[in-house]
Design a protein around this nucleic acid. Structure first.
Lengths: 137, 137
DNA sequence: TCATTTATTGCGAACGACTTGCAGTAACGC
DNA sequence: GCGTTACTGCAAGTCGTTCGCAATAAATGA
């Protein structure tokens, strides 16, 4: 289902701003800040305004098309993904990769049992050096 | 070792702003944003300016006296502690408790081995309902 | 105790990310 | 095409945070 179809299916208009924001988001390897997204969108079509980017991100967020994280100083955005995933943020090249492990599930179980806490969401952020940056120290 | 002694030992001056920021931070149960800290400091001594709070936080951060997290919309601060602690944030009463588990160590080992990532800090935040709020639903 | 030195502060202006109100534009249904 | 109105661009505004600079006060030594 393309972004156009998703929007139409939910009675939202298909606009160039929305198409471009989605294009930029889904073609990026790492998480992007709103400013990054605006820059990239602007490079393709300089008539798209920053506020449209913000409004589009807010809409996509409500439609659960994107996921906002607060990993660094700025919030960053990426296409939504289901799983509880760990974010590995490289402190040198700023790249963000995902790491999937059942340890997060174990964590949830432990917290429920031992701390008597009922979790709704788990956010794991690990900062450090990615393999590429680590090897060129 | 009091905050005064720590500062003197590292050749920094002991000032009212620094003392109050430390007092507020170390007597708080939960994480505080810079604005929160300023408000509380200001309530005790309204002559202390916001920029002093920011500068003090930056200093404390460099001295590893405090820990900054980027898990919410604003950064929040707390007295420094070991990595191996998980933050349990209750979404109803906003209280933050710490949970200590060796699972975090296991996570670190896994990430190093499987993802070839060399971690410097691990931040785990779990939001949900604390036992008290959960029982009164 | 007081004078000297200079780290630290308060203040105000500036910054950058983000939001908002409004008038114009363009997407969609007919 | 044509009308309706959801969206947009623009500009002004908000808010957390930073910065330059002159004034202040913490430490040191006499």
């Amino acid at each position: 289902m393309s972004i156009d179809e998703v929007l139409r299916a939910r009675d939202f208009r298909v606009t160039r701003a929305r198409q471009l924001v989605w294009e930029v988001l889904s073609s990026s390897e790492s998480h992007l800040s709103a400013t990054d997204i605006h820059e990239r969108v602007h490079a393709i079509d300089d008539s798209i305004n920053a506020s449209s980017v913000y409004r589009t991100l807010a809409l996509f967020s409500e439609l659960d098309l994107v996921r906002e994280s607060h990993l660094g100083e700025l919030s960053t955005w990426e296409p939504a993904h289901e799983d509880e995933v760990i974010h590995l943020v490289c402190e040198r090249c700023q790249s963000t990769t995902h790491f999937n492990t059942s340890t997060v599930d174990r964590l949830r179980a432990q917290v429920e049992e031992v701390a008597e806490f009922s979790p709704t969401s788990i956010d794991v952020q690990i900062t450090g050096l990615c393999s590429r940056c680590c090897s060129t120290t």
